[in-house]
Amino acid sequence: MGLLAGAAVLCATGVAMAEPTTGRPVFDQVSNMFQPVSVPAAKIRDLALLVLAICGGIFVVVGGLIAYTLIRFRARPGDEHREPPQVYGSSNIEAAWTIVPVIIVVVLFLATARTINELELKEPPESALQVTVVGHRWWWEFQYPEYGIVTANELHVPASTPDAPRPTFLWLESVDVAHSFWVPRLAGKTDVIPNRRNTLWLETAQPGLYLGQCAEYCGTQHAHMLLRVYVHTPEDFARWVEEQKAPEAEVASVAAGRDLFQRTACINCHAASGTVADGTFGPSLSHLMSRETIGAGVAMNTPDNLRAWIRDPQTMKPGVRMPDMKLADHEVDAIVDYLVTLR
């Protein structure tokens, strides 16, 4: 039953419908490793299919042998007191079932070694977009040194076209415990380890949104450390970069909220361009409204959800490292009014 269901989901087009539950993000995508959209993921898929075919073959042969032996040599009524011929072994047969597995293993090993070699890329190529990924408990920070952009949880990268190849090269770092960066349709996972700089690359021609999440247990909210990777056409990506670099518009009507924000401890943990806030403990709030989700995918980024979050983040994401700020309702409203102008 489970096998059938699994196979069915695996073969499905990768699009499943989802009933939006209150406040939760809508994920309409299955992160199926057999539907790669990026070079490394595609290479892994090809190797995986080869390995699956070989292993499947072995399973059929050995499983069939076991079943056949059980049926063929099962004791029949009347056999109780007769013993079968006593055979102690046979060097030839034993040699055969040592050598055949050795050959299979050598083939698998060579195929593996080749792909390891193909996928290894320790230094970024000239044309690559470089992003530094910093794992935090329990959210992701993305720094684009090239553009001076810092954002959170939603990674934006350009598509790579034949005439303008543009792979993305990620430097992986952590400020606290070990995490792991995993977006199955783009690449295999690589751990994000403190005191260590790992690398990962992807190259895709297919714009779209790809989901993933932290794959190394990192404490209380490991489950809500989601990743969203947006792949844009080169033009759209350039537009996104410009938006992120532009200064925030100062909207006069929310001056009260902005003041309050700057007078509260928010600024110790968060940065926001155009204000004194320059904290780095939490995600940067600059251009907050350009993100679709908040809290590393725990809720959609709507004014209502922002209000709920600031009133008490611990309810939405129990254990989260942002405290309940104990603000009065009108203070929360003022701050959210300000936050929604950060476009």
Binding site: A48, T115, I116, G188, K189, A215
Partner: peptide
């Protein structure tokens, strides 16, 4: 044991 496959399957 197939390292690249493991990058998808591990954890």
């Amino acid at each position: 044991a197939v390292v690249p496959f493991d990058w998808q399957l591990s954890d």
